[in-house]
Nucleic acid binder design. Structure first.
Lengths: 193, 193
DNA sequence: GGCCGTTTACCGACCCTTCGGTAGCCTAGA
DNA sequence: TCTAGGCTACCGAAGGGTCGGTAAACGGCC
């Protein structure tokens, strides 16, 4: 009945735990003791791996932002008609969201209360601006309705897609693929002319 | 050059201030001193009006939930075809959101970290269930596509609509009416057959 | 109208707990 | 024997909340 011998933590595996706790209670609502308890070690031990709470947040946010940025580098986001490129980006963002659920969950909820958060927000705005210009191109080529401001459309699409972090759980009952489908259908369907 | 004499606070006006602070920094990220500073009084003075921080949160959440519940009582939500009723609810939720921006902003971000939050979440789930059954009716009468689960559709709609609290500011540049229009167009347009 | 008890709105000082973070010791394994 | 990974014990600061008190406004009543 002995406790399963756990592989020692390193920065990555500890970040996994922390990000999950942050996603559950909110960054400000989660204490380092919460993280420690979830990891099964002492609070002090955390500081052996990482310089502080904000560093854990920063690592989580970086994962999320890197994954989002990578989407914009994919061929599907850069080749073909703007309409198709937009669809590719939306679908991939949904997929990445399900893949990095806690990280994205934290990213989508930060308020800019610290330098780390502010920098992440700035990063995210850059991402949004890129997509907004994609929406504008899609409007110009006639594959997206033009009676909605590109910035507003972008925010609405991602508002819908990002909100899934609040309730989607990879429990087998609802598959990521089907949900990504649904998002594309509703968000992009609603933007069709 | 004397300081403008401020009308004394009562519970309602203090709640206004608190809810705005909570919306800005997040409930957990906001301290009672933050609220006091924003109100221009001392932390101690707040306790003359209200029993504690959680009570301020509770009052804000109650406002939000009452406003949402009231929508379901309106004639437009109960008369006519399900498709039209759904559209009415979606539009009214958007309008109420812009009307009670800070309150709804706080409601949409709570995580269930306290009894007050848990109760509010339960309330909100009841609201969502009601709308989900409305979506199902609309599917049955053929005014909404049936290849998406009603619960998922409901969450996607409100995910889009609710996300506006993150960025919409009543600054005159973007009008609440136009934005409510855009939400109905995209969300309900995407659900059309 | 002047006096008096009461209420309202507020303050400064303080209390206790929790928080993020540090210091230093211990131990198993390469 | 050195070190990675962990522990116990602790710290100062910030957090929510309390306490005792005050100034001004508000009736009511002779």
């Amino acid at each position: 009945m002995r406790a399963e011998a756990r592989k020692p933590y390193d920065i990555e595996s500890l970040t996994n735990v922390a990000v999950r706790v942050f996603a559950e209670r909110g960054y400000d609502g989660a204490s380092m003791d919460d993280v420690a308890r979830a990891a099964g070690i002492t609070k002090a031990s955390i500081y052996h791996h990482v310089t502080g709470k904000e560093a854990l947040l920063g690592r989580g946010l970086r994962r999320a932002l890197d994954a989002l940025s990578a989407i914009l580098e994919e061929p599907g986001s850069n080749r073909g008609r703007a309409g198709a490129r937009l669809e590719h980006v939306v679908r991939r963002v949904a997929e990445v969201t399900f893949d990095l659920l806690p990280e994205l969950s934290v990213l989508f909820r930060i308020r800019g209360n610290s330098p780390t958060e502010l920098e992440a927000l700035a990063h995210r705005r850059r991402f949004d601006r890129t997509v907004a210009s994609l929406v504008r191109q899609a409007q110009n080529e006639g594959s997206v309705r033009s009676d909605i401001d590109p910035g507003v459309a972008t925010r609405l699409i991602f508002g819908m897609s990002n909100s899934t972090v609040e309730w989607f759980r990879a429990d087998g009952r609802s598959s990521p693929g089907e949900l990504a489908d649904a998002i594309c259908k509703v968000a992009l369907g609603g933007l069709k002319i």
